[in-house]
C-alpha cells in the first residue's frame, strides 16, 4: 500500500513541501525542486515591479507537476493576510493558502490569535487553509475547530536552520492531533532535522532556506528527500526502546570453550 499524505482530499506521495524563496537563480530553484521530489511549492504574493521587467517565477514552477501553495508571508494582521489570500486566489484560481500572520519582526514568530481570526474567516470563504503556528496544542485545536486543512507548527525560527528546538511540544501535538495533517514548518537546517521531524510522526515537513541557501541546493534537496523518506520509514517501522545497558546481538550459547 502506498504511503500517501492527504491534505483536503488531495493525495501527495512526497512528504516534502518546498519553498521558492532565496534561490540564487530561478533555474537553480527549478533543479532543486526536481531533486527534492516535492509536489507542493510555496510562493509569495508581492507587488509587480513596474519599473523593470522581471522574469516570472511561475515560468519555473510547472503547475502540472507541483501544487502551488501561495502564502501570506509578511502579513502582520488578520486583515492583511485575508487580503493577500484573496489576491492569491484571484491570480491563481486556487483556494489553497499557507496562512502566515507574523507577530514579531525579530523572531518571525506567528501571531497565533490573529492567525486563528484569519483562519476562521478564510475557511468560511472556502479556502483550504494551512496555517503556520506556534507549537501550542490549544491553538492547534482551535484552528482545527475553525476547519483548517492542516496545522503547521514551527520547529525553530523561520530561516534559522537551528533544527528542532521543541521536541516535547511537537511530540505532544503529534500524540494529541489526529484530525488533520501535522506539518513541521520552519527551522529545519539539514537532512537529519528532516529525519527527526518525520521520526516524531509528523505527516510532512515544509522547508525553504535549508535547501535554497545550501552551498549546493540541488544536492541538499536530494538529501532532504532521502531524509524525509528515511524518517518516515523509521517512524512506520517503530524504533526499539532505549535501554541503559547492552544487549548482545550475537548468541551467548555455543561460544567456543
Amino acid at each position: 500500500m502506498q504511503d500517501t499524505f492527504v491534505v483536503a482530499g488531495t493525495s501527495f506521495s512526497s512528504r516534502l513541501i518546498i519553498g521558492s524563496g532565496k534561490y540564487p537563480t530561478h533555474a537553480g530553484m527549478k533543479a532543486a525542486h526536481e531533486a527534492s521530489g516535492a509536489q507542493m511549492v510555496t510562493v509569495a504574493v508581492r507587488r509587480v515591479n513596474l519599473n523593470r521587467s522581471e522574469e516570472s517565477l511561475l515560468d519555473y514552477i510547472d503547475p502540472a507537476r507541483y501544487r502551488l501553495l501561495p502564502n501570506t508571508a509578511g502579513c502582520y494582521d488578520a486583515a492583511e493576510a485575508i487580503r493577500t489570500a484573496h489576491l492569491a486566489r484571484e491570480a491563481l484560481g486556487t483556494p489553497w493558502i499557507k496562512l502566515e500572520v507574523i507577530g514579531d519582526e525579530k523572531t518571525l514568530f506567528p501571531d497565533n490569535g490573529a492567525t486563528l481570526e484569519a483562519a476562521r474567516i478564510l475557511v468560511k470563504e472556502g479556502f483550504i487553509v494551512m496555517p503556520y503556528v506556534g507549537d501550542d496544542l490549544i491553538v492547534a485545536r482551535r484552528l482545527i475547530d475553525a476547519g483548517v486543512a492542516a496545522v503547521m507548527p514551527l520547529a525553530a525560527p523561520i530561516g534559522s536552520g537551528l533544527g528542532i528546538q521543541n521536541f516535547t511540544s511537537l511530540r505532544i501535538l503529534r500524540e494529541q492531533i489526529r484530525e488533520v495533517p501535522l506539518i513541521v514548518d520552519a527551522g529545519v537546517g539539514t537532512a537529519s532535522d528532516a529525519v527527526q521531524a518525520m521520526e516524531l510522526g509528523f505527516d510532512a515537513v515544509l522547508m525553504n532556506t535549508a535547501i535554497a541557501l545550501a552551498q549546493d541546493p540541488v544536492r541538499m534537496a536530494e538529501a532532504m528527500r532521502l531524509g524525509i523518506e528515511a524518517g518516515r520509514k523509521a517512524f512506520l517501522a517503530g524504533r526499539i526502546a532505549r535501554k541503559l545497558y547492552a544487549s548482545a546481538s550475537s548468541p551467548v550459547e555455543g561460544l567456543i570453550g
Binding site: A44, R47, L57, N71, A73, A91, I158
Partner: peptide
C-alpha cells in the same frame, strides 16, 4: 491600484 504577482517565498 495594486497589481500583484508571485515571487519566491517559503
Amino acid at each position: 491600484i495594486e497589481i500583484v504577482h508571485f515571487v519566491g517565498g517559503g
